[in-house]
Amino acid sequence: MTNTSVKRKQELKLALGLVLPALIIMAAVNLYPLIYSFVISLRDYDFHGDKSYPFCGLENYIYIFEDVRFWRSLGITLIFTAGAVTLEIGLALMCALALNRKFRGQGALRVIALLPWAIPPVVNGILWKWILNPRYGALNGLLMQLGVIDEYIVWLGSPSLAMLMVILTDVWKETPFIMLLLLAALQSVPSYLYDAAKIDGAGAFRTFKEVTLALIRPALFVALSLRTIWALKSFDLIYALTQGGPSNSTEVLGYYTYQKSFVSLHMGRGAAAAYIMTFIVLLIVIFYQKAVYQDVEY
C-alpha cells in the first residue's frame, strides 16, 4: 500500500466519523418521512375509504393533474411568488442603495430591520389579522385619519385586494432582511472601484450597472432564489390571514396540499400534491442554477 492511499483511507475514515452523527439524525428526521410520504402518495390513502389503503400506482398524481383547483392554485402561487419576490427584491435593493452610507445609529437601524424577520410566524399572522380587521383594524383607522380613504376598506374581502394584502404582509416581513443582505454586499464593494469609474467618466447609471450591480450580483441571486423557493411554499401567512379565501382566491399550493390532507382527509392525494409542488420548486432551482449562477464570476 502506498503512502498516499493510506493517507486517503485515514482521511475518509475521519470524514465518515465527522459526517456520521449528522447523517444519522438527517436519515431519521428527513429521509424516513420523505420515503414514508412518497409511499403514501402511491396508495389510496383515504381515511373515509378502505382501511387497508391499497396501492393505486400513480392514480393520486393523475387525480391532482386533472383537478381544476390544483391548476388554479398553481396559478395563484405563481402570481403570489412573482408579486412578492419582485416587490421584495426591488424594494430591498432600493433601500439598501439609499442606506449605503455611514451614519450614526446604523446598528440600531440594522436591529430594527431584523425584527420582522425574527418574530414567530404565528405572531406575524395574528398581528396582521388584527391590523387588517375590516371594522376595527389599525390600517383602516390610520388611513382614515390621514384622509387617504373616506370609508373603511374590507382588505381581505375581494380576491385581488386580498391577494395584494397577503403579498404586502409578506413584503413587510421579508424585505428588511433582504435589504440587510444586500447592504452587506454593497458595503463590501471596494470604494476604489467607484473612484475608478468616476475617473473613467462613467455616469451614475453606468456606475450602478457596471460596478454596483455587477459586484452584488451573487448576493442578489442568493436572495432571489431563496425568496422564490420560500414564497412558492408559503403556507403560514395564508392560513392565518385568509384560509385561502375569499372564494379560494388566495389558495396557494401549500394550502391546497393542506386541504387535501387535512380537510378532504385523503393523505395520498395530499402527499402527491406535495411531491408535485416540490418538483416544481426543483425545476425553478435548476433553472436558477443554469440560467443565473453559471455566469457569476468571483
Binding site: N133, P134, R135, V154, W155, G157, A162, P246
Partner: peptide, 21 residues
C-alpha cells in the same frame, strides 16, 4: 347588511355587535 361580512368570522361579528355597531 355589512359587506365586510365576506371577511368576517363569527367572533368578529360578536365584537361588532358588542361595540353597538
Amino acid at each position: 347588511f355589512d359587506p365586510a361580512a365576506i371577511a368576517m368570522d363569527d367572533y368578529e361579528a360578536l365584537i361588532q355587535f358588542g361595540s353597538g355597531d
